[in-house]
Amino acid sequence: MKRILLIEDDRDIAELERDYLQLNGYQADIVSDGLLGLSHALSGVYHLIVVDLMLPKKDGFEIIKEIRRNLEVPILIVSARSDDIDKIRGLDFGADDYLTKPFSPAELVARIKSHIKRYERLKGPIASTVLQHRGLEITPASRKVSVNGNPVTFTAKEYDLLFFLASNPNIVFSKSHLFDTLWDDDFCGDTATVAVHIQKIRKKIETDPAAPEYIETLWGAGYRFNA
């Protein structure tokens, strides 16, 4: 049974979320403050973490940053804060999705199912094979990446994009193809987010992001991992 962590200080909302998740076959744990929520999240036993932004003791942004330093588990933000700046900040810190309150519990369950399914599909196909390209090493079993022996931290979506490209070297993929393959239908964005993630990946793996050696841009066509 998949385990979901709900870090939410509104007990009524948290219990409603938990009930819907349980009806759909998930085990859901509720934690009402940020500090305790982070401790639970870092236990590594959860398949997905739902985080509110406005929490006592430690806010959601800090929780997301700390989780991302240690784990690649999917993270879904649920918050009453609907400003684009909050959404962008949350996604930049490593969240995979953002759902604005009020929302349908059925939509929350659907997004959770989708993110877990996508995460498992992307990490599973060649889990025993380590990808190595000129100092870049990707270990799918642990979703770890290193450059010249130095570990590099990625958000879940950055890792998914890098892994997909590195697993299909020397093939050109359009932004539309990458977006359709790696992002959910419910994601509030467009193909521009692919370019943003490519830029972030390059900053982490390229010696000179302005003259990339690994992920090349073919203007008018898309991106190619140069093997």
Score class of each variant (00 low, 15 high):
211 A>G: 00
157 K>V: 15
37 G>I: 12
28 A>G: 05
86 D>S: 07
5 L>C: 03
51 V>H: 02
141 A>I: 14
141 A>T: 13
39 S>M: 13
193 T>D: 09
221 A>T: 09
48 L>T: 13
135 G>V: 04
222 G>V: 01
70 N>K: 14
57 K>C: 01
36 L>E: 15
165 L>G: 00
199 Q>L: 11
133 H>C: 09
167 S>A: 10
54 M>T: 11
148 N>E: 12
65 K>P: 06
220 G>F: 05
4 I>K: 00
87 K>P: 02
98 Y>R: 01
3 R>Y: 02
8 E>Y: 07
212 P>C: 03
175 K>W: 00
192 A>S: 15
67 I>C: 08
11 R>A: 08
191 T>E: 15
45 V>S: 13
79 S>W: 04
137 E>K: 15
13 I>M: 15
173 F>G: 00
190 D>H: 09
115 H>T: 01
114 S>M: 10
62 E>L: 10
111 R>Q: 01
32 S>W: 07
223 Y>K: 03
116 I>D: 00
206 E>Y: 05
112 I>Q: 00
58 K>D: 03
66 E>S: 12
19 D>V: 15
170 N>K: 12
165 L>S: 00
23 L>E: 11
95 A>N: 04
26 Y>L: 06
105 P>V: 04
168 N>W: 09
3 R>D: 02
172 V>I: 14
133 H>S: 07
108 L>D: 03
126 I>M: 09
215 I>S: 00
56 P>Y: 09
202 R>Q: 04
208 D>P: 06
45 V>K: 14
39 S>K: 15
91 L>D: 07
161 L>A: 08
12 D>L: 09
91 L>W: 04
58 K>P: 08
45 V>T: 14
222 G>H: 03
164 F>N: 01
119 Y>S: 04
89 R>V: 02
33 D>E: 15
137 E>R: 14
24 N>K: 02
184 D>H: 07
78 V>W: 06
65 K>N: 12
36 L>A: 11
157 K>W: 12
221 A>P: 01
62 E>Q: 15
152 V>G: 04
99 L>V: 11
46 Y>W: 10
111 R>I: 05
210 A>H: 14
8 E>K: 10
205 I>V: 11
114 S>A: 15
84 D>L: 12
127 A>Y: 06
173 F>E: 02
